[in-house]
């Protein structure tokens, strides 16, 4: 079963799916594992593991700090892939690589795809790699059965959305608002229109990300998006309330799927 089929099947039982995010190495690999256990416990549908990078230009302040701290602790590629493999083997949810293109470029696109496959990842999300710069990466990811996740944003022209969607694989990542991760999004008409626009150009599930934090945000998306992405809001909870608060937050989000 490929990623799209997995998501479509789950969407038959749930009004929306939940994708969560972990910055590998922040606050620590041990804490990451506890987060992943909580995600497993809440039956999260999909998880993106972020490979830390020194110049995380598409991230907001909290994730920037997380990237930086993870690197300061000495997180290397091997630590990242070890965690990816352990998580994929231990939990039911599929795992995606999220990171910046210098990681893929430095590793070599071929080794990058081979590494994700070998450590049981299902695809990758690289926000600073527009499709024009993919080159061989489309073919290489097909060879390894990986889904390169495409990003659409409300500033894109119709033509651009169409082009991005035509390269889509797995699902389409719709960026809800202008800007970077970690700020609140009013789920207004503009967002709805944007999702409707994307829907015109693809049959793949639409994931909505950037700024979602509460179960209400997810409920509002029923019938509008297929997947809700919650990233920095959960990390914020971990920082403020620790593991138990984190678990509660996750459970409340997970409940918003029914």
């Amino acid at each position: 079963m490929n990623l799209t089929e997995y998501l479509t099947k789950r969407l038959k039982k749930r009004k929306i799916l939940l994708m969560t995010h972990v910055v590998v190495g922040y606050p620590s690999l041990e804490a990451n594992w506890k987060m992943l256990e909580a995600m497993g416990g809440a039956d999260v549908d999909l998880v993106e593991l972020q490979m830390p990078f020194s110049e995380p230009s598409a991230d907001g302040p909290l994730f920037v700090k997380a990237n930086q701290e993870a690197l300061r602790k000495g997180i290397r590629w091997q630590d990242y892939f070890d965690l990816m493999k352990r998580a994929s083997e231990q939990f039911d949810f599929p795992v995606l690589m999220m990171g910046y293109c210098n990681t893929a470029f430095s590793m070599g696109f071929e080794a990058f795809c081979a590494n994700i496959r070998r450590h049981c990842g299902e695809g990758f999300i690289i926000p600073d790699l527009p499709l024009e710069e993919f080159g061989e990466l489309f073919k290489l990811s097909r060879d390894q059965d990986l889904d390169p996740i495409m990003l659409c944003t409300p500033t894109n022209s119709e033509e651009r959305l169409q082009k991005i969607c035509s390269h889509g694989s797995g699902f389409i990542y719709c960026v809800a608002r202008k800007g970077v991760t970690g700020q609140n999004t009013q789920l207004d008409l503009a967002v709805e229109n944007f999702l409707r626009q994307c829907r015109q150009y693809t049959d793949l599930p639409l994931a909505l990300g950037f700024g979602l934090s509460q179960r209400e945000d997810l409920c509002q998306l029923h019938g509008k998006a297929g997947i809700a992405i919650v990233g920095s809001a959960l990390l914020k909870t971990w920082e403020a309330e620790g593991e138990s608060g984190y678990r509660k937050h996750l459970i409340s989000l997970a409940a918003a799927r029914e």
Binding site: P127, D128, P130, L151, R160
Partner: peptide
């Protein structure tokens, strides 16, 4: 060179 930009900035 190139343009390794996030999609949000494409139109700009």
């Amino acid at each position: 060179g190139g343009m390794f930009i996030p999609e949000i900035l494409r139109t700009t």
